[in-house]
Design a protein around this nucleic acid. Structure first.
Length: 480
RNA sequence: GGCCCCAUCGUCUAGCCUGGCCUAGGACGCCGCCCUCUCAAGGCGGAAACGCGGGUUCGAAUCCCGCUGGGGCCA
């Protein structure tokens, strides 16, 4: 490829950045980075009724979070209206386009009639040769020949041909002066020197029209790559009713951007058997020609697995910072974290309290939200008791043992996972018990449930003071 | 309705272009075992797919046609 690659992501700001759009952006971004080209961003906001500034901001935020940095833009179509007008006038002058004075109501009526009569609901071309005064209001239509075929040379689908007779004289500019999608896209892609149009499959049917238009305008044709869509579990186009589709919603649930990127890139593309890709590897290996042509179903379970993987791989320091807002969501305030951090002396290897927590809990969390929820009992806040666990593990005979253990814990010289384990093992051996016979009841007393990281790590993290308090509450004694 | 796209385990996919190496490979999920103070993580193992029908060929998941099914675009 001798020409300098220029690609674009062109969302319309009528909603959030959803995972389908994110994948399209990602493929464009990777294509640009692989070729050392330019990735530009364009906001398709000609539809003022449906476009919102909040949506623009959300889209930019989502892209930034995913690490998809753009080199140019964001361009806004709403600020480029004069360019569309200019080229519309040119088409009108050269006779490539004509003014159509049919009203929307008339068109709708004829469309219905055609459908009822079993004919195709295409525009019948009745204004094509009608002579109208230059300033007559009305829509602008492209004059499309009805012989021959238009072939889309697609990087993913190969040559796809459309009968020109199937194309009608589509509208370029509505009677209210607003350019249509197909018109604005062609103008902008040409004016911005876009070399490759990488977009969703749903635009494949629009492409012959855009090719016709490019030719009428004497614009060079970009290359096309129409990537298959992402579907929901019911095999229909992914939408809100399939649950979270917004990129920022995944962020807010505690997914890591690298996990989402890794998941999305593999949805429709593969590189042998490799599942995990660093950003550098993606840039090195991503080949648009390797993108498959079959639609893919979004699978939350696999995303969860990847997210868990990335959480386990992540630098604990970085994770510890990320988890703070999630703790807040489950009622752990920053002051509580600060207090624990200040009191945290064990370890001595320089790891902070939060880092130690992350290391202890990350093997069993798929999201940061889950990690925060699982670890909230470490703080001095009311904890939920699992009634079944209490009934099962905190029976009178075990409480006797816990009472004795409490006394020994109070006198333990050094409060660390290692010394605690030694103490517990010695106690169990002395009483002829299995470790689990005393470990599980202790776990229930401290955490409220039967599931946690290794007990002695948990005890170290909870700290002697709070451990003794919670044990005392359970064995029915006060005063630690 | 017309046109266009698509069709390998439940899901993501390798293989298809350039037929034989496919007893169809990997991953997620699921099931089992190991590890073990619980749950995970990790390790090991298992069940699980070429939509159907015709061709072409010595031979087809791979090429061709049809059907069926799904998706999309036209409003």
């Amino acid at each position: 490829m001798s020409e300098r690659v220029r690609v674009r992501f062109a969302p319309s700001p009528s909603g959030h950045l959803h995972v389908g759009g994110a994948r399209t952006a990602l493929y464009n971004w990777l294509f640009a980075r692989y070729h050392g080209g330019t990735f530009l961003l364009r906001i398709e906001d000609t539809d003022a009724d449906r476009s919102t500034e909040a949506s623009v901001e959300g889209i930019l935020e989502g892209l930034q979070w995913l690490g998809l940095d753009w080199d140019e833009g964001p361009y806004r179509q709403a600020e480029r209206l004069s360019k569309y007008r200019e080229h519309a006038e040119r088409l009108l002058r050269t006779g490539k386009a004509y003014r159509c004075v049919c009203t929307p109501e008339e068109l709708e009526g004829r469309r219905k009639a055609a459908l009822a009569a079993g004919r195709s609901p295409r525009y019948d071309g009745r204004c094509r040769d009608r002579r109208v005064e230059p300033d007559t209001p009305g829509a602008l239509r492209l004059r499309v020949g009805d012989v021959g075929v238009t072939v889309v040379e697609d990087l993913i689908h190969g040559g796809v041909s459309f009968d020109n007779a199937e194309l009608d004289d589509f509208i370029l500019v509505r009677s209210d002066g607003v350019p249509t999608y197909n018109f604005a896209v062609v103008i902008d892609d040409a004016l911005l020197h876009v070399t490759h149009v990488i977009r969703g499959d749903d635009h494949l049917s629009n492409t012959p029209k855009q090719i016709q238009l490019s030719q009428a305008l004497d614009f060079p044709l970009p290359r096309f790559a129409h990537i298959p869509m992402i579907l929901g579990p019911d095999r229909t186009r992914l939408s809100k009713r399939h649950g979270a589709t917004s990129v920022l919603a995944y962020r807010d649930q505690g997914y890591l951007p690298e996990a989402l990127v890794n998941y999305l890139v593999r949805l429709g593309w593969s590189h042998g058997d490799q599942e995990i890709f660093s950003r550098e590897e993606l840039i090195r290996h991503f080949d648009i020609a390797q993108v498959g042509d079959t639609p893919a179903i979004f699978d939350q379970a696999k995303l969860d697995w990847l997210n868990g993987h990335y959480i386990r791989q992540a630098d604990p320091k970085w994770l510890a910072d990320l988890v703070v807002p999630f703790w807040r969501q489950v009622g752990v305030l920053p002051e509580a974290i600060e207090a624990r951090t200040a009191a945290w002396t064990t370890g001595g290897d320089g790891t902070t309290f939060a880092e130690a927590v992350v290391q202890a809990f990350r093997d069993r969390a798929t999201t940061l939200a889950e990690l925060a929820q699982d670890s909230r009992f470490l703080f001095r806040i009311p904890i939920e008791q699992d009634g079944q666990a209490v009934d099962r593990y905190l029976r009178p005979e075990t409480l006797t043992h816990l009472r004795e253990l409490t006394d020994r814990l109070r006198g333990l010289p050094t409060w660390s996972a290692a010394t605690l384990e030694t103490l517990y093992r010695a106690f169990a051996a002395e009483k002829g018990l299995k470790l689990g016979d005393v470990a599980q009841p202790t776990r229930v007393a401290l955490t409220g449930g039967t599931v946690s990281p290794p007990l002695f790590v948990v005890m170290e993290l909870v700290g002697r003071e709070l451990c003794l308090e919670r044990l005392a509450a359970v064995v029915g004694r006060t005063g630690a």
